[in-house]
Design a binder for these strands. Structure first.
Lengths: 201, 201
DNA sequence: TACTAACTGGTACTCAGTACCATAATGGAC
DNA sequence: GTCCATTATGGTACTGAGTACCAGTTAGTA
């Protein structure tokens, strides 16, 4: 499966990598907005038209990695053992989300550059959120399939996303701190309701 | 304060309204992408340049109302009585969010058109989320100022947003169902952790 | 009424994204 | 290896968003 790739496919993969490499190099130098698609195409030694054949728009190239990771983890979540118990689903979501954070920060330098681009360009941040929402939606779909009723099936992954966002905020720019911060956010979750007993003191 | 407005300001407000009205009329007819800024400017009887003087980009005009509501409610949240108790903050967030939903759906026809535009144009949906995140960030800031420690200060409004998104999903296109659905999502929240006793059976 | 400051809209530009086309390269059949 | 159908490539030309600039006009003020 590793070598089962035609010359055409290998060339395409190489072109794709050249585009991504060229793009990130230029983005690191000048930022997202000050790099044109023509610049990227030129450095990648492909035509401008070809760029748009590989990436629907200029933003997509920023997420070539993130998209792959999300697709990958969407499949992994679907492969998880089934359960219809809501608290149990939350525990699994917690583990899953923290593990995903670990993978996202596996290459710290790239993660920092990626996050820097998002921080400097609101429209990229938006796009990133859209991609995460796709993962969230896939998770909800899976939970529904497992018999989790609404609104829990929709809410649980949304809450997991809330914890991720919170962890990302508290961790700041430090990649190493992200998984722990996200886990802490999940921990905090229980204090929201548990502190409020059905029979107040 | 109502009539304390110069001729210049009145003219500007009128131009602004003309642009918004023209834009929504055209969007309702042809959708967001098939309407150009030149089309809007023409129908609003202003120059294309003037459009960009009032709205930073074509998307902004879609959110002229939403932005006003969010600014308004950001101020209202800041004016809420202070408390540093986390479960109490969640209860207040719940009431606040549901009330905000009621205002957002106060004009059902406009709400439906707005939601339809967001549903048909992912980039508009992204932009809407960005605006809500501003509200969420302002709330977190406020909670921090009230002495709520991290990560609760960041997490609580994020969870409220998760409930809003969930309610929006379960309510579907029905404006009247939104506040109730969002409230139900908050209710569901307590079941996430309360079902899991510290000492499993 | 005259002056100054601000608003207007037109022109011209850059760049993202799309449609189209001629050319070149690939992979398969023989 | 040769031929052919398929497919990728990159160039040209276009539309539309967004920006910079500028001359003309209009509101507020003395």
């Amino acid at each position: 499966m590793l070598t089962a790739m035609s010359l055409r496919q290998r060339k395409q993969q190489r072109a794709r990598e050249q585009i991504v490499d060229a793009a990130f190099a230029l983005f690191a130098e000048r930022g997202f907005t000050d790099v044109t698609v023509a610049d990227i195409a030129e450095r990648a030694e492909v035509g401008r038209t070809t760029f748009f054949r590989y990436f629907g728009d200029k933003q997509e190239v920023v997420f070539s990695d993130e998209q792959r990771i999300i697709d990958d983890w969407t499949a992994r979540y679907r492969a998880l053992p089934h359960t219809a118990d809501v608290p149990d689903a939350m525990v699994r979501l917690r583990e899953f989300t923290v593990a995903l954070c670990r993978e996202m920060t596996a290459d710290p330098a790239h993660y920092v550059l990626h996050e820097t681009l998002l921080a400097d360009n609101p429209e990229l941040h938006d796009r990133s959120m859209r991609k995460l929402q796709r993962l969230v939606a896939a998770m909800s779909e899976e939970l529904r399939g497992r018999g989790v009723p609404e609104p829990a099936a929709t809410l649980a992954p949304q809450v997991a996303l809330a914890c991720y966002r919170t962890g990302r905020h508290t961790a700041g720019v430090d990649p190493a701190a992200l998984p722990g911060a996200v886990d802490a956010a999940f921990e905090q979750l229980s204090e929201f309701t548990s502190g409020k007993a059905p029979f107040p003191p």
